[in-house]
Simulated scan of single mutants.
Amino acid sequence: MHLNARIFVAGHRGLVGSAIVRRLQAEGYDNLLLAGRDTLDLRDRESVEAFFAAHKPEYVFLAAAKVGGIHANETYPAEFLLQNLQIQNNVIDAAYRHGASKLTFLGSSCIYPKLAPQPLKEEYLLTGPLEPTNEWYAIAKIAGIKLCQAYRRQYGFNAISLMPTNLYGPGDNFDLANSHVLPALIRKFHEAKLNGNQQVVMWGTGTPRREFLHVDDLADACVQLTRTYEGEEIINVGVGEDISIRELAELVKEITGYQGEIVNDTSKPDGTPRKLLDVSRLHALGWQATISLSDGVEQTYRWFVDNQAQVRAA
């Protein structure tokens, strides 16, 4: 991937896309094709076709997606399934037909069965039922994986699929109505501290375990694997360690300086009991995460505090 290659980062304003842009720019890539939703609606086939015809990207990072936590997935199942399918189908097909050298598709660890053995190996895909609270998003991502594999088998298109674990970092979504657990906890504890609240309520029992990867680590993995990995098989991208939601809440409480107590709302769903990725295939390819969870949460909290004016927090 030469330094003046035409590189399209789909979803460059989102958490993942913006991190990929930062990484590419830091490494000297200066011919990035960036188009926001206001100028390019990736759900619209004609718009995507016109963009690829005009710009002929050589490399494509498909980081655009409709994303959200349990509440958002349960509230908008049709949008999560349909819009993600539209985005994926349009971009993957256009990239192939307009001669892109390579496409990197970003999936999610929620593609794996709810009760699959832990840690989650890549070969566990499609071996059991999905977690109901995010199956709409998961089915769309599985379809994206299979479309990449189908285009590789039928047309020889060089598309790879990476499956990140739970992500966090600068640019995250802190809207309590549709954010993921870590940014939601950061906002809850920060506001509780400012307001002098005696309690912070967190969903569920706190017992589920999750793995968290800083988005800058993911971006580094994406760039490295785009340069070096040529296989059809999906690759898990994570740290290989997890933490309970309760332990995560305690960590966020400490970093934000909140002094009150944590109360569990057990009427709310827990989601998947555990979701830890097996990253042995990733390590064998020569990549490992470098940002610790405590350092990453502290950095993310500082970013949240410093960017209150433009932070995504309705």
Rank of each mutant, 00 (worst) to 15 (best):
H214M: 03
N197G: 01
N236T: 05
K253W: 10
Q198V: 00
D220L: 04
R210P: 00
A249L: 01
V239W: 01
E232T: 13
E261Y: 07
I234S: 14
H214N: 10
E232H: 07
D242N: 15
V215H: 03
E254K: 15
A221D: 01
T256R: 09
A219Y: 03
S244M: 07
G204L: 08
E191L: 15
V223A: 04
T207A: 14
A221L: 08
S244Y: 05
E261C: 13
M202F: 07
N236F: 07
E261I: 15
G260D: 08
Q224H: 12
L248G: 10
D242T: 12
F212P: 03
L218N: 02
K253R: 14
R209V: 09
I234H: 00
C222A: 11
E247F: 06
P208H: 04
I245M: 13
L213V: 01
N195Y: 02
R246M: 13
Q198F: 02
F212I: 01
I234D: 04
G238C: 04
E241P: 04
A249F: 06
I234Y: 04
I235F: 03
G240A: 03
V200G: 06
Y258C: 12
Q199W: 05
G238Q: 06
Q259D: 13
D242Y: 00
E232Q: 11
A192Q: 04
V237T: 06
E241T: 14
E250C: 13
N197E: 15
E254T: 14
K193R: 15
W203N: 10
Q259A: 13
G260I: 12
E232M: 10
G206D: 09
A249S: 15
V237E: 04
E261P: 07
I235K: 03
V237I: 15
R209K: 13
V215G: 00
